[in-house]
Design a protein around this nucleic acid. Structure first.
Lengths: 146, 146
DNA sequence: CCTTGCGTTGAAGTCGACTTCAACTTGTAT
DNA sequence: ATACAAGTTGAAGTCGACTTCAACGCAAGG
């Protein structure tokens, strides 16, 4: 598969694929001339990268989970830990979502008078909503440039 | 309150407070000499900023919700919409969390043989885990510099 | 043969939210 | 009075994950 095929199939920009290769996340050993030829397995590797990003891992962290052969060999403890971090983040988000819904429905003339909203603000101000030790990605990837 | 008091009380760096002021998110009209004096209400405004960030808003978006007086006047429709986006993100994260836990516990010798994990990878690769129209922050704020 | 278009490279630019720096000024304690 | 900590400014730097640019290569189709 050449780079544009991979790009089309995965929705990942060719420039990003080259970037991943430079970072050692994927490989393309065989080349036709100067052009990269990717093995079909790269699709799965890219899936793992996408998954890792969704889980909040940096590319460097993801790289640690990939063997040089492109197989992934993930420390199960790390997996559990990440799952736990995500759960924590989910709790945070649920609190925020509940707060927002309440504020949207709240009959008080201004949110300034709404006790529930006040509570949420206070939590936010006191850092209760701040992330834990390891930052866990909240922000998905930026939209692909059009 | 002077800047260091606000910083201490909120855990927000003084440089960040100055930055927020430059961006028009908070004010400090009165000054003792060249030094900023903040009204106590700034604490609440900072709470709103933190809340907005947790909800995935950019500072510019948050600014739109603040009147020049520092009161917040939020479009309830927007609130509901944001809550909905957050819920979508929560679903995504739950899927990832479940997948990670499964992979951690999965008896297959390599994750490559685990059907559940395969499914997750495929979803990730196909973009099912990609964010919606409006990017919703996954990544919390970076840890305060030490 | 020659154009066309996809591919290549290294270097530099982008975005958001801050931080850091250098160079100063000021308020307060001694 | 004098030192010192804490405040001020504008400009520049940082971080991650890419994108964009300029300049160039090369293969296949007409």
């Amino acid at each position: 598969m050449d780079i544009s095929q991979v790009a089309r199939q995965t929705g990942i920009a060719a420039s990003a694929l080259r970037y991943y290769e430079r970072q050692g996340l994927i490989t393309s050993l065989n080349r036709r001339g100067a052009r990269r030829i990717f093995a079909p397995t790269v699709i799965q590797q890219l899936g793992l990268i996408a998954l890792g990003q969704t889980a909040g891992l940096s590319l460097d962290e993801i790289k640690l989970m990939l063997t040089p052969q492109g197989k992934f060999e993930i420390d199960r403890t790390l997996l559990s830990q990440k799952a736990h971090e995500i759960d924590t983040r989910i709790k945070q988000l649920r609190a925020v979502s509940r707060g927002l819904r309440h504020a949207a429905a709240c009959p008080a003339p201004s949110h300034a008078e709404c006790a529930t909203f006040q509570r949420l603000l206070k939590d936010a101000a006191s850092g209760a909503l701040r992330q834990s030790e390891f930052p866990l990605p909240t922000r998905p990837k930026r939209s692909p440039a059009v």
